[in-house]
Design a binder for these strands. Structure first.
Lengths: 334, 334
DNA sequence: ATACCTCATGTAATCCATTACATTTATGAA
DNA sequence: TTCATAAATGTAATGGATTACATGAGGTAT
């Protein structure tokens, strides 16, 4: 494989000149540049980025940590991250942590070992202190999920406000007994969506009732089971707010198995607006997060840090969208 | 940031000795090793992998090219690739090509620039010649989709046999008018599934009828439209074979909108067994590919190439599984 | 005691590109 | 013509690790 030395020899110039041509740095005589380009072409030379990266102490590589790529929620975000990244010459390393603390730690070694110029956390497993430490040493951004106390920038939506809005929608439809399919995880989105649910009820004079709360922990199967339990009660809820679309699908399935019609007998709302929310039968009322944009903004924020243009952590909240579909609103049915 | 020189100074040994401790290469006196480890600990030293990689001419990084991570079909495969990769000290770079030829080419520069030790194609855009060239110069494997003529190993299932089997299942249920929702893409899976459909009909004395073929090109929306057209015919099919689960969902939706019951009025079968196939209502009959295993085998094959243990391309076919669910079989209904 | 070998460790070359600094050549002003 | 300055190019140091080869200490066989 040809190296810069071979090119220099072929073009009868020094390696410095070749490097200058490669990087359009200082001026090179047109004739010389031509000769170098010819030599590059002739030898089919490709710069070895390992050498360049070592010298420049950068890798143009970004670490993106997420629980699992199989969750369709993340795909749009990843596209945003990639697009902005590529536009700036960065490549993305997508890594599944499986929500495992150790695995996340292992991946972070790539930062410490200089194999990555920065990191975007989609759902950090580290605690606030550890996150802050990473944030103080390396460019880092949290996207979607975040730890409030951590000294690391984040991009997200206002989960509290969005959940409040969707529960209010159910209340406006006349529902008074509204169940919740939530999660025991203590990620910020769970906590805020729970709280908003409670608060929306109370603000409308509806007593919060722990019996109407089930836990699905973001899994279809467990949501199905939890919803079944809720719906088999004598005083079953007439509406269910699931804090993710996948769990909403579980809830709808549970309703169907209990021979209840959605939304006539029980209305169901989800959260996230994954592709399947509009493919399901009935189509699911949900909160659309600006996924692509969130990815873009997160990456832009990271790039700023890499360039040293950001002196203190930023917290960016983007707009969401309540999308009303068949699963809650009778008259939207065909 | 501490370097190996700092550690050597601190431990009062040479850099060679530090390196030996780091790599457990040749013998080092226990006392010396102890001193080195202490220095490493004290300075919180982490080897700079850029230096190591340059010297060793390897990156322990694998490029995985797929159309888009948002397709849930790929997630299981990626897990297999990751698991085997990590077990062997490799990291994965997942890259979305968006089925774009240029983008795929761009990513392949990472191989040429030595930033990646090998590549796994999930659905190559390159032509056979270009693939063969990559395969001759770098470790490479095709997984799931592949170009038959390319001189690059591949791991897949027998798409032809699987499709033949699922169409036979529909025929056994008594269907004679069976529609196809396929794709105009000329990837091997489309072609083979189409051919098998045709052949299965003919082998059972059913005339192949182009009027019963619609094209969805792997998209929900287009499959919905194509299925609507098929189902609005006077001589509408009583069964539909969609060559992907997502398109099967489109077909089911089309049936529902036409007030046809699935499977009573029209049976629908898919392909891939994505998670949503068993979450949909009705649950979808489909072919389960051994996704995780395919990922594992692909990665193992790649590692063999990297180690130079593979002299010629291998073609590995794994077993699939026909899973019969509600969407085709009346008596499996609750 | 001599020659030879082994083990532990050190010295310095190496991987490949970038870049600070040095050198040469050309240009223009005085 | 001479000196100062700018432009083009070259030389060599640099980034951080690995590793071939060199060295010296200690052990063994004769």
């Amino acid at each position: 494989m040809a190296t810069i030395v071979d090119v220099a020899r072929e073009a009868e110039v020094s390696v410095a000149t070749v490097s200058r041509v490669l990087n359009n740095s200082t001026s090179v005589l047109p004739k010389t540049r031509e000769a170098v380009l010819e030599a590059i072409e002739k030898l089919n030379y490709k710069p070895n980025l390992l050498g360049r990266n070592l010298r420049r102490s950068q890798t143009k590589m970004i670490l993106v940590l997420l629980p699992t790529v199989s969750n369709p929620f993340y795909s749009g975000i990843v596209k945003g991250i990639e697009d902005i990244g590529h536009k700036n010459g960065y490549n993305i390393m997508l890594c599944n942590t499986n929500s495992d603390y150790q695995r996340e730690k292992t991946y972070l070694e790539l930062l410490k070992n200089k194999l990555s110029d920065g990191v975007i956390f989609m759902a950090p497993e580290l605690n606030e202190e550890e996150l802050s430490e990473i944030g103080s040493k390396y460019p880092a951004v949290q996207c979607c999920e975040y730890k409030e106390g951590a000294c690391v920038s984040h991009v997200s939506i206002d989960n509290y406000k969005a959940a409040y809005e969707i529960v209010s929608h159910l209340i406006e439809l006349g529902h008074r007994r509204i169940g919740l399919i939530g999660s025991k995880s203590n990620c910020i989105s769970s906590i805020q969506r729970h709280e908003a649910y409670k608060r929306a009820l109370e603000d409308n004079g509806i007593q919060f009732d722990t019996d109407l709360v089930g836990y699905g922990n973001y899994s279809y199967k467990r949501a199905l089971k939890a919803a079944k339990a809720l719906l088999s009660r004598d005083d079953r809820p007439t509406a269910i707010f699931a804090i993710s679309d996948i769990m909403a699908i579980g809830a709808i399935r549970a309703a169907k198995e209990a021979r209840l019609r959605v939304p006539h007998d029980v209305a169901v709302a989800g959260f996230d607006n994954i592709d399947f929310a509009s493919m399901y039968d009935p189509m699911i009322t949900t909160i659309a997060q600006p996924r692509y944009e969130m990815g873009c903004v997160a990456m832009e924020l990271l790039l700023k840090q890499i360039k040293g243009e950001l002196d203190e952590p930023k917290s960016i909240m983007l707009d969401y969208n309540l999308i009303i579909r068949e699963s809650t609103k009778v008259d939207t049915l065909k």
